[in-house]
């Protein structure tokens, strides 16, 4: 299980409305409800995870993230979060645009494909990387749109998304010194805080 970046709570204001796309067991939302008294809603596909969310008293809707968010109003949420899922949706660009239609701000995390371990595996052994963060073989993986810090920032420029904050973390949610200085090479997980370019 990949933990969430320690920066996410810093980017959430108290008593705000937060939507988590692909909220899993609801751990992040439950934590934010306790620490920030947020008004939380999760979207999740797996009924077993939905049940765990309900155990924690969270509201959660079964909904496929590949469909649009047309059932939500414009700017209905203060923050829309999506952790470690962007690389698994069919159209990351459209999902990002929808996130910033229904939310004032977005927080996105994804595996950095340019992380040194991935580069070594691909560059030296000549194989697609398989490691704790990307555990699946290429022919059977949900991660169909892998990208890097550079790629992501290029997309943001193209679709008029403003980057309010950037962070890196390793798999245990902590930032390393190398990751901070050279994120595209040493950042294992990319963490972004975004808003729509005004």
């Amino acid at each position: 299980m990949i933990l969430h970046s320690h920066r996410i709570p810093d980017w959430i204001a108290r008593n705000t409305r937060v939507l988590d796309l692909g909220c899993g067991n609801g751990d992040l939302l439950a934590q934010l409800v306790k620490s920030h008294q947020i008004d939380a809603l999760g979207l999740e596909l797996d009924p077993k995870k939905i049940a765990t969310c309900l155990d924690q008293g969270l509201s959660v809707i079964q909904q496929d993230l590949n469909s649009d968010l047309s059932n939500f109003n414009d700017q209905q949420f203060d923050t829309v979060i999506m952790t470690q899922t962007l690389q698994a949706v069919r159209r990351p660009d459209l999902v990002l645009s929808e996130m910033l239609r229904v939310g004032r701000e977005a927080i996105v995390t994804f595996p950095n494909f340019a992380y040194i371990r991935n580069r070594m595996q691909l560059g030296l052994s000549g194989h697609m990387p398989v490691n704790p963060q990307l555990p699946n073989p290429w022919y059977d993986t949900p991660n169909i749109h892998l990208s890097t810090f550079h790629d992501f920032e290029e997309l943001c420029r193209t679709i008029s998304i403003k980057i309010l904050g950037r962070d890196t973390s390793n798999l245990s949610g902590k930032q390393t010194w190398f990751g901070k200085v050279w994120p595209n090479l040493f950042g294992e997980v990319a963490v972004y805080r975004l808003t729509k370019e005004s």
Partner: peptide
């Protein structure tokens, strides 16, 4: 479900 979302209510849903 969608109407409750639009109305900003606490709703959970599973198919």
């Amino acid at each position: 479900v969608d109407a409750l979302i639009q109305a900003d209510k606490q709703v959970s849903y599973t198919r």
